[in-house]
Each structure stands twice: as structure tokens, then as C-alpha cells.
Design a protein around this nucleic acid. Structure first.
Lengths: 127, 127
DNA sequence: GTAAAACCTGACGTTCACGTGAGGGAAAAG
DNA sequence: CTTTTCCCTCACGTGAACGTCAGGTTTTAC
């Protein structure tokens, strides 16, 4: 498939795919005319990349991790890196939970009929 | 306390504190000479700001939320905003869990003596 | 009273993951 | 064969959260 189709299937922009290639995260065969051609499994690869981006990893880190995911590299260093990133994600989840908890407290307060309700509540809620 | 002390206590840079003020997230009294002076509770306020930044909120969103946290604003809109942000954090946690799971799978594979270990494992692990 | 810290206001620089044209070929459709 | 449609490579723009340097003032220490 060509880049437009992959972009649609993977739910990202064409520009993003070119960027991934530029970062070494995604490779493509080229037609005689220079156009990129991808195999079907490129869709999953893009999903994975997106997932790692969403987890807060940088292009560089993803670039280091992908060979491990592909099971092409498996050294003590690579395993340490994997664990380090997993731990980073764990810490990030912990932070998010804290923030969530904090917001929940505020929400609970704001929804209880106690404390300083600006009374815009009971008034405007029906109107 | 002055800005340097607050920066140290809160574990952020002086520049960051000035930036927070610029964004309306943090206010300070001024000395006759124009220097910022903070109360002790500013430390907690900075912690909170950092927590919300870490949760992926933008300055603008934090600016909108802070009055709610301070219980100074409590309208149907503000409560909806709080819930929206909490839900966003929930979705982000879900994504992080997925990424973590994926990494865990890779780690499990790389640490099991099966599959394509590059053998750098059993060799160099002792050396 | 003077020198060293610490602070002030601009204002430009940085990084990241792309967005967005510009100008020009390649490929599928008629 | 021509017309769309898709694709190509530069290459500059963007937004967010600061970093950093310049040039000057205020506070603190001796």
C-alpha cells in the first residue's frame, strides 16, 4: 500500500508517517518512481509507535526500543533500557493517579451541597 | 520568601516561577524595589501546578481549574470542566497501562531463556 | 560604603512532533 | 493521451514550557 492508505488505516497524517521514517522508526520500500510502499503489518507498527509516543517516549527512545520489540536485539543493556522505560511509565501512572485523586477531591467538594457553592449551581442547573 | 528560595523549596527553576506568574497561575506581592515576595503556601501551590502539568494539562486549562480548586468558583460549567479533565486523565492512564503491558510482554520475552536471545545474555551477564 | 548575591525586565533560543504550503513528478482513471 | 489524484522533497511555521544571555537594579554581607 502507499502512504495515503497507510495514513488512513493507521489514523495518522501522511506527514507523521514521513516523520517516523525520518526518525528511523518506519521503513518503506520505494517504487521506481520513488514512492513509498508499505506492507500490511506497517499498520500495526504505526499503532505501536503511536502507543509509545502516547506513553511519553521520545523518538529517540522509541528508536532504541523498537529493535528489542522486534526481538532483534537482546542484550543486558537493552533489557535494562526496557525496564527503565517501564518504570518510567509506572511513575507516570502514579503521578497521574495523584492528579486524578486531587481532581476527584475538588469535584467531590464542588458537588456536595456544603461549603462555598457560588449558588450558580442550584439556580442555573435547571434553567 | 523571595523567588530563589521558593524555587529551591519547590524544586523548580526561577524562570519557571516567573513563567507561572506570566500565565496567571501564581501571584506575588512586590517589595518597594519590585522584587517578588511569596507566602509559605506558595510552595504547595507550585507543587499543585507541577502536578497538573505532569498530568498533561496546559497552562490555560490549569488557569481555568485553579479557581475551582480554591473553591472560589463553582458553577455547572466549572464542574463539567473538572469532570472532563478527570476523564481525560483516566483515558491517559488507560493508554499508559496499555503501553506498560506491551513493554512487559517484550521484557518477559527478552528475559525468558526461550526465543531468539542474542546470547549476549548468559555470556556477559556474569562478566 | 562597597562589593557580592540575588533579583528585575525584555527578548531571543530550544526541543518535539508534527502542520502547511511551494513547486514539481508518478500513478490510476477516463 | 490527458486529467485528476496522489506522491515527492525541501523548508519554514507552530505551540508549549521553559533555558539563557544582556544590561541594569535591589538586597544582603562584610
Amino acid at each position: 500500500m502507499r502512504i495515503g492508505e497507510l495514513a488512513t488505516k493507521a489514523g495518522v497524517s501522511v506527514r507523521a508517517l514521513r516523520y517516523y521514517e525520518e526518525q528511523g522508526l518506519l521503513t518503506a520500500a520505494r517504487s521506481s518512481g520513488g514512492q513509498r510502499h508499505y506492507l500490511d503489518d506497517a499498520v500495526d507498527r504505526v499503532y505501536l509507535i503511536q502507543m509509545l509516543y502516547a506513553a511519553g517516549l521520545s523518538s529517540r527512545t522509541i528508536l532504541d526500543l523498537l529493535p528489542c520489540v522486534d526481538a532483534k536485539v537482546n542484550t543486558p543493556q537493552s533489557r535494562a533500557m526496557l525496564r527503565a522505560e517501564r518504570d518510567r511509565i509506572d511513575r507516570q501512572i502514579t503521578q497521574l493517579r495523584q492528579a486524578r485523586k486531587r481532581l476527584d477531591e475538588v469535584i467531590a467538594l464542588s458537588e456536595s451541597p456544603a461549603s462555598g457553592c457560588t449558588r450558580a449551581d442550584t439556580d442555573a442547573a435547571v434553567a
